[in-house]
């Protein structure tokens, strides 16, 4: 109870700073996710074309995933220095896994009969991909994106390690001083952010489902 009151106290006294941190946090995780989608989906498409490439990409992404946070940040810092750039790059690299994994699984899982039907209709490879495979795999891809988004908002606390701010700055201040109120004051906005962003993505997913239903109805 004291903890809650104390946390409310932190909110009251430093809400402006917290708001700024939340903005930075959202900006960094959103940029990272957009980059990860832009890179991850094409990679996964490539993986469906070639078994060996699939193995190679998967292993590389797994390996990137296992690089410890500080080491990855130190490596990226060589090129991008302190600040948002380094934080966003590292976050994007860490968010690739669920996006690639789900896009790949989703595309592979598309009913082969439908693809054959498409081929029979004279569709080109690209048409098959954009008109049959991706729309059908969309719910699975979006699920991957939603997992990646949540993970990325959670992981964005590391941005503070390279001076990029975000809610991690408040959380780390709390952690290094064993001050749970500060930790909560940083963690609660992060959790709210996750809920909010996930709601928005849920809305988008409903639209995608709508398209899927039409696709199903049309087939």
């Amino acid at each position: 109870m004291d903890l809650l009151i104390g946390t409310l106290g932190v909110f009251a006294s430093s809400w402006k700073q917290l708001l700024a941190f939340t903005g930075e946090h959202l900006f960094m995780s959103a940029s990272a996710i957009l980059i990860a989608i832009a890179a991850g989906v094409p990679l996964a498409v490539w993986m469906t074309r070639n078994q060996r490439v699939a193995f190679l990409i998967q292993t590389t992404i797994n390996a990137i995933q296992t690089i410890p946070t500080i080491s990855l940040l130190l490596i990226v810092m060589i090129f991008l220095g302190l600040g948002y750039g380094t934080a966003i790059t590292a976050l994007a690299l860490y968010s690739l896994l669920p996006i690639v994994q789900n896009t790949y699984a989703g595309l592979e899982n598309v009913n082969k009969n439908l693809i054959e039907a498409g081929t029979g209709m004279g569709m080109t490879k690209l048409q098959l991909l954009t008109k049959v495979k991706i729309p059908l795999a969309m719910p699975i891809i979006l699920t991957g994106i939603r997992v990646a988004t949540v993970v990325s908002i959670g992981a964005a606390t590391m941005a503070t390690f390279v001076g990029a701010g975000g809610l991690g700055e408040m959380i780390m201040r709390g952690i290094v001083t064993t001050d749970d109120q500060k930790v909560l004051a940083g963690a609660i906005p992060a959790a709210l952010l996750v809920i909010l962003v996930d709601l928005i993505l849920g809305k988008i997913e409903k639209r995608a489902n709508f398209r899927l239903q039409t696709a199903k109805a049309q087939k």
């Binding site: 500080i70 810092m77 503070t160 390690f161 390279v162 701010g165 780390m172």
Partner: peptide
């Protein structure tokens, strides 16, 4: 520039 992660990060910066 606060919150830097560890001594190596400070040094590299």
């Amino acid at each position: 520039v606060g919150g830097l992660g560890a001594t190596p990060v400070v040094l590299k910066a």
